[in-house]
Amino acid sequence: MPGPAPDERMRPIGRRNTQGIRIDPEAEATHEPRMAVLSALVKHEPGVLSEVSSLFSRRQFNIESLTVGPTADETTARMTIVIEEPEPGVQQAKKQLRKLIPVIEVEELESAAMRRELALIKVAGDKPDDVQAVAQMYGGDAVDASKDAVTVEITGSKQKIDAAIEAFEQFDVLEIVRTGAAALERGSKTMDSATMESDN
């Protein structure tokens, strides 16, 4: 005797959301995307940058910026990766990153962490004094000037640089280049080889 057809079978009451999380009917947890700054200490060897960027693209993590540079120890480098993901995505990105063999440690920086970006803005050279005045309002400086163009340098948070760029729009902007974020935790907390040993 064959069992009941699909529509006549015993059914559970619950559901999961698309992230595989059981839905609590009392309090449905919504996961809005948020910005997260990940700092990864990696081995300084060929291929690491492409391993990390390939990981983020193939797993469809929404990447805002990625910077990489040397550390005090020449065998390691530090990557700062800013992503925008719902909470489960942030957690998954951290775990996937940690799994890469050349990655020594991964940490999500607190939102209070210091974040700095750099922008170089090239504008027409007809009002050099005005340009310099605006640059100084944003703690920046003109770093190159010629008859036709002035280039200023601004460092700071993303918001500050966004605001500076907007302010420069009153001039004739010729070209802009921006870096991604470099970030460090405030206070004495570090992510160095000492923590690496205690991890193993």
Binding site: R16, Q19, G20, I21, P88, Q91, Q92, K95, K99
Partner: peptide
């Protein structure tokens, strides 16, 4: 054994 599989598809 792989932490990255935890809650990847099913919490």
């Amino acid at each position: 054994i792989d932490p990255a599989e935890i809650s990847k598809n099913i919490e």
